[in-house]
């Protein structure tokens, strides 16, 4: 998870804590460096109108972009992280968790529930990069698995929006096994004949990319998201040379056949509902 940038912007979600939203009326776009008016950026779903850069947004921002007004109901809110290894690096894992909870206003790195996307009922799981880099530990694995199972129980579609640096180191082998757990659950969804749309946002890498994020019946990516198995820094160190331009971007993975469609944020909802019209028969 070494490749975070410093851009963490929330705002569409009225419940988000104030400190997630940078102060000031003007922001510098991390894509083109231009100074943009904050209100305008917000109206544009935090996509720069000058260069099209998709700024990172929160799980609740995605929920309000995707779900019909008032249709989303959050579920499994009471699943909370533990510290099974007693992990401590520069600070103890429980402290890290508490900080992440306070900073994000979330219990963990994924928000799950049911909602409607242009009237299509969906089981929705949205990851949140603000929470320890959107990393997947036991709670994320369990909540994603329950979201899959909920789709099967209710015979509705599954949509997962990923934003993650991968499996969470602080839960060691347990995090790794969440890749197995979620993949196992997805086989049941397939047996049940229900569609799964995987949405990859910036960044989706490592253990999450190497499990459920890559297993969508349809894989959608936001423009210019960082995707991949290994982090670019690790690859650069391994091969000892500069990486090619655009390496590991959404466009790169589209070109190489691992992404179906690149969809800008303002077309995300419409694209998903159109796809569900083809894939979901109720």
């Amino acid at each position: 998870m070494p490749w975070y940038d410093n851009i963490r912007i929330g705002g569409l979600n009225k419940n988000a804590k104030k400190k997630d939203i940078p102060d000031g009326l003007w922001l510098k776009c991390p894509g083109c460096g231009e100074i943009v008016y904050r209100k305008e950026l917000e109206k544009n779903l935090f996509v720069c109108s000058k260069c099209g850069h998709h700024l990172k947004i929160t799980s609740w921002d995605y929920i309000s972009i995707l779900c019909d007004d008032g249709s989303f109901q959050e579920l499994d809110t009471g699943i909370l992280p533990e510290d099974p290894l007693g992990f401590c690096d520069s600070k103890p894992y429980p402290v890290r968790l508490r900080n992440a909870q306070e900073k994000s206003g979330l219990n963990e790195a994924v928000v799950c529930g049911i909602g409607e996307i242009d009237k299509f009922p969906v089981s929705l799981a949205v990851m949140d990069f603000r929470f320890i880099g959107g990393s997947m530990g036991s709670v994320v694995g369990e909540k994603v698995t329950r979201s899959i199972e909920r789709a099967i129980e209710r015979r509705i579609s599954l949509v997962i929006v990923s934003a993650s640096g991968g499996a969470r180191m602080q839960e060691g082998i347990l995090s790794l096994m969440q890749m197995a757990k979620t993949a196992c659950a997805l086989t049941k969804l397939k047996e049940a004949g229900l569609p799964y749309i995987s949405v990859l946002t910036n960044p989706t890498t490592a253990g999450v990319m190497a499990s459920y994020a890559s297993l969508g019946d349809i894989v959608i990516a936001e423009p210019k998201a960082l995707l991949g198995f290994a982090g670019p820094r690790v690859i650069q160190q391994t091969i000892g040379e500069e990486l090619p331009e655009g390496f590991q971007s959404s466009e790169f993975f589209l070109e190489h056949g691992f992404v179906d469609i690149i969809v800008p944020r303002n077309k995300l909802k419409k694209t998903i509902s159109t796809l569900l019209g083809y894939l979901y028969s109720g």
Binding site: G141, Q178, A180, K181
Partner: peptide, 8 residues
């Protein structure tokens, strides 16, 4: 694999 994970 369903049962793997530690949470409360």
């Amino acid at each position: 694999y369903r049962d793997m994970g530690v949470y409360r």
